[in-house]
Amino acid sequence: MAKYLAKRIFYLLLTLFIVITVTFFMMKLLPGTPLTNQAKLSPQEQHLILKQYGLTKPVWQQYLLYVVGIFHGNFGTSFQFSDQPVSYLISSRIGPSLLLGAQAMIIGVLPGILFGALGAINKNTWIDSGTTIISILGISIPSFVLAVLLQYYVGLKLGWFPIADWGGFSYTVLPTLALAASPFADTARFIRTEMVDVLNSDYIELATAKGMSKWGVIYHHALRNSLIPVVTIIGPLAVNIMTGSMVIENIFSVPGIGEQFVKSILTNDYPTIMAVTIVYSVMLMVVLLLTDIVYGIIDPRIRLTGNSN
C-alpha cells in the first residue's frame, strides 16, 4: 500500500510538473502583455511595467522563477487586476466553486443511484423506460441551457430562488441543480447497467432460492455490489462538474474560479489562466487518487499493487 501510494504520488507530481511546463510555454507563445495602452507609453515606461511583472528576463529564468514561485504559493500577478496577486484571486474564489461542486456531486449522485436502481429492478417496464428517458434528457440537454431555463422559470417567474449573485444557501440552489443534472444522469445510467448485471449473477439466484425476500436481496446483495463501481466514475463526474462550473458560475454570477477562468480567457490574463489550469488539474488528480484508494479499500477484490489493472 505504502509503495503504491508513493508511486502514485510520484506520478501525480510528475504530471503536475508537466502541466506547469506545458501551460507556461503555451502562454509564452501567445501575444499580449500587461500593458493596456501601449501606444501612449514611452519605451522606458513600458520597460518599467514589464520589469514589474518579471517579463524582461530571459524565458528560461522566468520559467524557473515561476516553478519555484508555485511551490511557495506564488502564481504571479494578474494582468487584469493591477497589483492583484493571482494566488489571492484564486484563494478568495475557490470556496464557492468547491461548495457548488460538492453540492452538485451529492445532489446528482444520490438520486442517480436511486433512479438507476429503480430502472434495473423494474427492467423493461414503464418505470425503466421513464428513468431511462429522464437520464437521456439529463445527458443530452447542455447544462448551460438548463441553467438559463432554471434561472428564468424557477428564479424569475416563480421567484423561488435568487436568480444570480452569491449569498446564503438559497443562492446556491439553482446553480447546484444545473450542475447536478449531468452527474445525476450519468450515475443513473451507470447504476442501471451495473445492477442489471448483478441481478443476473449466481449469488442473487442463490439468495432468492434460500428464501430471502425480494427487497432483502436487492438491498443486501444487488445494491451493495453495484454501488462499488460507482466510485470509479466519480473522477469523470468531477470533470463534468468542473467543465459545467465555468459556464454555470458565469450565468449565475457566482464568484468562483470557473467564472474567473472565463473572464481571464476573454481578457488574455495569462497568469490567471495558468494558475486556474494548475488548480483544476490538481483537483482532478487528487480526486482520481482518492477514488482509486477508496476503491481498493471498499472492494477487497481489487489489489492496489503495481499492476496497471
Binding site: 506520478y11 510528475l14 504530471t15 468542473m242 483544476y280 488539474s281
Partner: peptide, 21 residues
C-alpha cells in the same frame, strides 16, 4: 502513463489552452 497524464488534466482546460494558442 502518457494517457494517464493527459487524462488528469480536465479536457476543457486543454481545449481552451489549445484554442488560445
Amino acid at each position: 502513463r502518457l494517457i494517464e497524464i493527459i487524462m488528469s488534466i480536465p479536457q476543457l482546460v486543454v481545449v481552451v489552452l489549445l484554442i488560445l494558442v
